[in-house]
């Protein structure tokens, strides 16, 4: 490499080969670059965080649903976090069908009891979002195709869910998601 440093600055130049040991200049270099690096990382955090859900979006992330008017065999669609939520009151036949299936034969093994709240075995609350690629399955509204297993059927890529909304046939990897919810009274659930 060409010697481009002026002669009069040579003895102080950091470009000249290093002597043994840590020089003051090395310490200053590391300290300055560390401070700048940490400062840079501190800047990255808000730049990433600003794209996360904002306060008003998070404030809309619990939904109350009155389930008192749902008759056995009926389902309603509610909205939870801007996504459809299926609330379905199962008939005794549907409960029996769901419980008759050997759990070990399922792709995503879960019992109906695990997917409902204690004392409310007939109240099936799931997201209306197919676990394959996110379409809304049919079967909640009157007269829609409920699929081969009498639960829900996703028309996009043909996933069939049973009466406990568990995946039985088709490409979806898991059962319809049961969101966090609780009964705030006998007839009202709070989701989220």
């Amino acid at each position: 490499m060409a010697d481009t440093t002026a002669t009069d600055t040579k003895e102080h130049s950091p470009l000249i080969e290093k002597k043994d040991g840590v020089r003051r200049r090395d310490f200053l270099d590391v300290a300055a670059l560390s401070a700048a690096g940490i400062g840079g990382l501190a800047v990255v955090y808000p730049l990433i965080s600003q794209m996360a859900p904002s306060e008003d979006v998070l404030a809309a992330s619990t939904t109350e649903v009155d389930v008192s008017a749902i008759e056995a065999g009926q389902a309603i669609k509610a909205v939870f976090r801007k996504q459809p939520l299926f609330v379905r009151r199962l008939t005794p036949t549907e409960i029996a069908e769901a419980q008759a299936v050997p759990v070990s034969s399922l792709r995503d093994p879960q019992t109906l009891d695990e997917r409902t709240k204690e004392g409310h075995l007939d109240m099936l609350v799931t997201m209306g979002v197919c676990t394959h690629l996110g379409c809304v399955p049919l079967g909640a509204a009157e007269g829609e195709n409920k699929g081969e297993f009498g639960g829900y059927f996703c028309p996009c890529h043909g996933s069939h869910y049973d009466t406990a909304a568990r995946i039985r046939k088709g490409p979806a990897p898991t059962n319809l998601v049961v969101p966090d919810y609780e009964f705030t009274s006998d007839t009202v659930i709070q989701v989220g």
Partner: peptide, 13 residues
């Protein structure tokens, strides 16, 4: 105002 109040770090941006 939404940026100022609701967006994460929106006020700072």
């Amino acid at each position: 105002e939404h940026i100022m109040r609701d967006i994460n770090w929106g006020w700072m941006m």
